[in-house]
């Protein structure tokens, strides 16, 4: 267990990328040119542990969404490597990336993003339908029960509440048992009770079925559901926190906000950081 800059470079250096569902290696993402040049990610190196629920936190502009998009193959990096389940995404063409998203990545968005013409069930099976595959019946049943939507399967999104819609979106992401499920502020549009349901769902999928889940959020109470929180600031990793609770996350966030700027991108307070296997407080 190291106390400094969490896990990833060391893990990568130590040759254990197999323990990671996905990782970014020296990734930069630069928008614009010349004076308007902005580095959203600044040579970031970070791994997402397999079978865990990882939260990525940071103030707005810290690059957390960009990082997630790059990890999920939605966006291309300017330099560096992104590896998902052993595949180097930076070497893939558009067609292969589409296939990868279809088969090996699940998405949950802030704004639900269900297809309005399809029923709840059809939305869940959509990626499989696109791929022309049939989902395992038993698994689909289990999934439907776990999201608690059995009686709403024939409904269209417009007939579902926000929480129900987001649970459908979760089920859709989980259905193909992807390498990683990426959730982008999944509770951003929900009331707190619905939010808790969705977060519980994501946590349980990691605990019960070993599904790797990555969630981007700026809500400390949401992050508290994760096994591990990685903090980002100015496009770099600014520390991480294992088995967080709401208070420790808040504390760390304050720190980040206060010490903004490149200088603060170094590993933060060693006392509160820990490796992925770190014990609970």
């Amino acid at each position: 267990m190291t106390l400094t800059a969490p896990t990833t470079p060391d893990l990568l250096a130590a040759g254990h990328p197999g323990d990671l569902a996905a990782y970014a290696d020296q990734v930069s993402k630069v928008y614009g040119r010349g004076d308007s040049r902005v580095a959203a990610l600044d040579g970031i190196t970070l791994g997402v542990p397999k079978g865990r629920f990882t939260a990525i936190m940071g103030p707005s502009g810290s690059g957390k969404s960009t990082l997630m998009h790059c990890l999920a193959g939605l966006d291309r990096v300017t330099s560096g490597r992104v590896v998902l389940g052993g595949t180097d995404l930076t070497r893939l063409g558009e067609r292969a990336l589409t296939r990868l998203r279809r088969d090996r990545v699940g998405f949950v968005f802030q704004a639900f993003n269900l297809v309005p013409t399809l029923t709840a069930l059809e939305n869940i099976t959509l990626p499989a339908d696109i791929a022309g595959r049939r989902l395992d019946r038993a698994w689909l049943d289990e999934l439907v029960d776990s999201v608690g939507l059995r009686d709403r399967l024939r409904h269209r999104p417009s007939e579902l509440s926000g929480g129900q819609q987001q649970r459908v979106a979760c089920a859709r992401a989980l259905a193909a048992r992807p390498d990683v499920v990426f959730a982008d502020e999944p509770t951003g549009n929900l009331d707190s009770r619905s939010g808790r349901e969705v977060l519980g769902l994501l946590r349980d999928s990691a605990r019960r079925t070993g599904q790797s889940v990555v969630m981007v959020t700026h809500d400390p109470s949401a992050a508290a559901y994760a096994d591990l929180v990685v903090f980002l600031s100015d496009g770099r990793v600014a520390g991480q926190l294992a088995d967080p609770d709401q208070n420790t996350v808040l504390e760390r966030m304050k720190h980040l906000d206060g010490a903004g700027g490149p200088a603060a991108s170094a590993p933060a307070d060693p006392a509160s950081s820990g490796g992925p296997g770190g014990g609970r407080p």
């Binding site: 939605l74 589409t98 296939r99 998203r101 279809r102 993003n113 297809v115 696109i130």
Partner: peptide, 16 residues
Amino acid sequence: VREIGLLRAVGLSRVQ
């Protein structure tokens, strides 16, 4: 637009 983005995100190919 958003719906098309979603479909693409969950793996609908350009051809599809």
